[in-house]
């Protein structure tokens, strides 16, 4: 089997897999902090649980990037013909690998650290409820970088040769 094609398949699934790993770790960290905060509070649990789910968005971005890469690797349907299946070739494999893996790594790291930001926000706003909105800002900034990686992966996927 051609290694180049294997790399193409790795790149295709990398955004989803790496995004999932990041979301798992990020949500677990923030979720643990939310559970701990519940031990010390009498109410207002909902917003902490909601905050702990914030790192799940990277997983969704990963899925969208995967579909975009799949579309990029699918030849155009001939006029009046049946749709052709996606084909990983020596021509599109390097592009799919680089875009998929790099975008996946960016999503994974952002989800992990966003989870840490959310955990800190939960811990801080538990002690000072009036700073809840402000304490979420670092997590939102981290999310912003994930969105950049996501958007530009989509943009560049249109340049991958068929």
């Amino acid at each position: 089997m051609d290694w180049l094609l294997i790399l193409g398949w790795i790149g295709l699934f990398a955004p989803t897999a790496l995004g999932a790993v990041g979301s798992i770790l990020g949500c677990a960290r923030a979720g643990q902090a939310a559970c701990g905060a519940m031990l010390d509070l009498e109410g207002g649990y909902g917003r902490y649980i909601g905050l702990s789910a914030l790192p799940s968005s990277q997983m969704i971005y990963g899925i969208v990037v995967m579909f975009a890469l799949q579309t990029a690797a699918t030849p155009a349907t001939p006029e009046g013909g049946t749709p052709l299946p996606m084909t990983i070739t020596a021509a599109n494999s390097p592009g799919i690998f680089v875009l998929g893996v790099l975008c996946g790594v960016a999503l994974m790291v952002s989800a992990i650290y966003q989870g840490a930001c959310c955990a800190s926000a939960i811990s801080v706003s538990k002690r000072k409820p009036e700073v809840f909105g402000l304490s979420v800002a670092p997590a939102a900034i981290v999310e912003g970088f994930a969105v950049f990686a996501f958007i530009f992966a989509l943009v560049l996927s249109g340049s991958i040769p068929k």
Partner: peptide, 13 residues
Amino acid sequence: RTYYDLIASLPGL
């Protein structure tokens, strides 16, 4: 090792 649940459960000093 980190203790997200334990430390978040402690009231602020």
